[in-house]
């Protein structure tokens, strides 16, 4: 009964429709940037690359042998000092034609490198906005208190509102994911680039469907906790900057606990992150090494689930006991 009421309220709420329009526009903006970055190699670029290649090749023919010699000397010196072979491939220093051509992105690469982040941004922001404003409006208008004089069972009210926000955003999620997914594929296809859709890519798109409703739930739950859109905005911004950007940015070992990393992992079916380890050498210099660490999909999904369930439970307990004036 409450769920149906809440769904009806969201449907007649103008701000929800405004966010739907904003979401569609945002998705098309993402497609626009995709269009710009998905550049096939033009004849002009090919010519420029040929000129640069020939230039380098000439130089190589003049000084190539010297450079190989110098490289080998350096390699021997390092091997002497550290007792390890640094493994410079000195013979491979000859210029190669394909190194002078810009890289031609495939659809899969584009999605991995920037498509996912853009999609997370659009779907996340729209979801959070719908969820937060719908619930915060109840507190600011006092309509929540009025409703509670009709239905004093707070947990039912809570479940009804959070559930409604989740359900109501499913069709929107379908719409936006379709625009983004089909749009990106179509752009690569039209541009004549590699637009192969592997099974993995298809599953990524399917898992992306969960993003918007999940963000809407989180938005609603945060609004139940904090009672005002402005405060939710401040907390989300503070978290994004303080934890995601500064905290995780400075100490990469925290990456397994980053929402962003785990969202990417959720979409990519597991992900990797880099940890820099630096050691001081006996001679005083600092030697840094970057090692790649993997995060399994199970970790990603589990971490996000635990965070989500905790948030939902804490907000429910707080709302159940809270004084409403």
């Amino acid at each position: 009964m409450l769920l149906r009421t809440e769904l009806r309220r969201l449907r007649i709420r103008r701000l929800v429709w405004l966010f739907v329009v904003a979401g569609v526009l945002g998705s098309f903006f993402v497609l626009f940037t995709t269009w710009v970055s998905a550049q096939p190699i033009t004849d002009e670029m090919r010519e420029q690359a040929e000129v640069a290649y020939q230039d380098q090749l000439e130089r190589w023919e003049e000084h190539g042998e010297e450079e190989i010699e110098r490289c080998e000397e350096e390699q021997a010196r390092i091997a002497d000092e550290t007792g390890e072979d640094p493994g410079f491939d000195c013979a491979d220093m000859m210029p190669q034609r394909e190194h002078f051509l810009p890289h031609e992105q495939s659809l899969a690469e584009h999605v991995d490198w920037s498509g996912l982040t853009s999609a997370i941004m659009v779907l996340g922001v729209v979801g959070l906005a719908i969820g937060t404003t719908a619930v915060a409006a109840e507190f600011s208008s006092g309509a929540m208190a009025t409703l509670l004089t009709f239905q004093p069972r707070r947990l039912r009210v809570y479940a009804g509102k959070v559930g409604a926000v989740a359900l109501a955003t499913v069709p929107l999620s379908l719409l936006l994911c379709t625009i983004l997914g089909v749009g990106m594929w179509a752009i690569f296809e039209i541009r004549g680039l590699d637009a192969t859709v592997s099974d993995a890519l298809l599953w990524t798109a399917v898992r992306a469907l969960a993003l918007l409703p999940a963000a809407a739930i989180v938005g609603a739950v945060l609004a139940f906790l904090l009672r005002s859109t402005a405060v939710v905005l401040a907390v989300v911004a503070g978290f994004a900057i303080g934890w995601e950007a500064i905290g995780v940015g400075m100490a990469q070992t925290l990456a397994p606990f980053s929402i962003r990393t785990n969202l990417v992992g959720w979409l990519q079916y597991g992900t990797t992150y880099f940890v820099n380890t630096c050691e001081s050498q006996p001679d005083g210099s600092v030697f840094c090494d970057s090692t790649e660490q993997t995060l399994s999909f199970a970790w990603n999904a589990g971490f996000l689930a635990v965070v989500g369930v905790l948030l939902i439970a804490v907000a429910a307990l707080v709302f159940r006991r809270r004084d409403l004036s």
């Binding site: 009964m1 409450l2 309220r9 208008s141 006092g142 009025t146 004089t149 009709f150 239905q151």
Partner: peptide, 23 residues
Amino acid sequence: VESPKFFPNFTGRQNLELLASAI
């Protein structure tokens, strides 16, 4: 309680219908 509190952007009828359907 204190003053009438409803959704400002919904009509009077919509506000009542929402409450009615909630119970």
